[in-house]
Design a protein around this nucleic acid. Structure first.
Lengths: 236, 236
DNA sequence: TGATAATGATAGTAATACTATTATTTTTGT
DNA sequence: ACAAAAATAATAGTATTACTATCATTATCA
């Protein structure tokens, strides 16, 4: 058991979210500077917003230079795609880890929805990434990573494959519970995007959401999903 | 009846979507140049995307100057807020017009969801606005109008009040059908945002949506909503 | 017709979004 | 331990962006 624990530890401390290498010029996970770029870009984007964020400002934060940052990312758009991908990759890993051993399809989906919708907590296995703040960025900025004129080209190049893979996984879970439901893919995509949106509304437009201190996003989304599926047996 | 018709005509041809005057410096609906700015900004944003769009480029399109455009809008962000508001105001007007006389709550909501989710058609009453292209912009760009660091300040100033009013209207319709449903506001906001998102996915990420030639967004959203509400009596 | 408002023409500025070159430091293979 | 290679820093430069300011010209309408 002790051996197993240390094996587990090794597995976990060596974790690395695998991101399409076309998104970056040089893998930021491969060097100290790269990690500082990622770490501090999260903090700075959260602080001043993506529009005001520049490589020049970031370079000052990390006592480096613009040109050094440009060796890792072509531009700030690619950096945002990278951060979003990292988030979804991390979420996918946690989702698979948490649902893998659950046999019951309904419980499995419930757990998956929990992982997706619950407030994010710091994950100690990635010390250069503050997942709590990254989640804030994903809520407020990540839509901008695909709402561009280049989306089709970048989609072809696989920039969004992690997100899509996560969507496929969830779609399968839904189909396993109710294969007769007509719009599993759309339900999944509205859940993924809608979850972020509800978190945003809760913070900035509380009058048009019921999600607040008393009602969690998890509760709303879980309810929404299961109200669309047959053969579910009440609340867990 | 002939008199009534011409009164109706007058009413309709004088239509003007009312937009919070804090969004603009000078009302673009008040002059020829203003209308050309709005008309051509829609076309140009659709053509090159909001990031690449500049007042300089727009000024060349309309054979005017940057400084003239700046007399109407402080910056391109405000112009986007304006265009989004116009869209939601126009939708609200059509929604009220179409649902006003419907007594049956379920039919009323069905009609409202139709208006919101159906592909947009050209409206002849506003000749300086191409509603079909405006809808494309709303799908791809309008999220950027509130995903900013200034959102709370701008919300206080009423920049998003038309959108929120539309959300309240829909929330009331839902509550009228099922007052026991626990998340009417969140359901409405996920429907409004989700509708745009499904249109986007249909165009750019067809593998994670069921909305396509065969399944309309209307069908998916209507289904989603009514599956969450009690006391509905099958399909219309 | 004369004043006023609207638009156009032109110029200027700080910041952005890069690219290029060269110098310095760090890493690494033997 | 040392040379070669790789990574980073320093510096400079460019076209474009996102404005602001000023003044000239052209409609409007009282």
């Amino acid at each position: 058991m002790c051996a197993k624990f240390s094996e587990m530890e090794r597995l976990l401390t060596n974790l690395k979210v695998n991101i399409n290498s076309k998104i970056y010029l040089k893998d930021p996970q491969s060097s100290d500077l790269g990690k500082r770029i990622v770490e501090n870009s999260i903090l700075l984007i959260d602080k001043i917003g993506f529009e005001q964020f520049t490589f020049r400002k970031l370079s000052k934060e990390i006592n480096s230079t613009e040109s050094s940052i440009y060796r890792y990312f072509e531009n700030k758009h690619k950096l945002l795609v990278y951060l979003s991908s990292w988030y979804w990759g991390w979420l996918e890993y946690r989702l698979v880890f948490a649902t893998n051993s659950i046999e019951n399809p309904e419980q499995k989906l419930r757990k998956a929805l929990e992982i997706i919708t619950q407030p994010v907590e710091q994950d100690m296995h990635f010390d250069h990434i503050n997942e709590v703040i990254l989640h804030k960025i994903v809520v407020s900025e990540s839509s901008k990573s695909f709402l561009t004129k280049e989306v089709d080209q970048e989609n072809k190049e696989g920039f969004f494959s992690i997100y899509k893979r996560l969507a496929y996984r969830l779609t399968e879970m839904i189909e396993e519970i109710d294969s007769s439901y007509s719009h599993p893919k759309s339900l999944v995509s509205i859940v993924l995007e809608g979850t972020l949106h509800q978190h945003f509304l809760r913070e900035h437009f509380p009058t048009i959401t019921n999600c607040n201190q008393r009602h969690s996003v998890t509760e709303f989304i879980t309810n929404l999903v299961f109200n669309n599926l047959k053969e579910h047996h009440g609340s867990k």
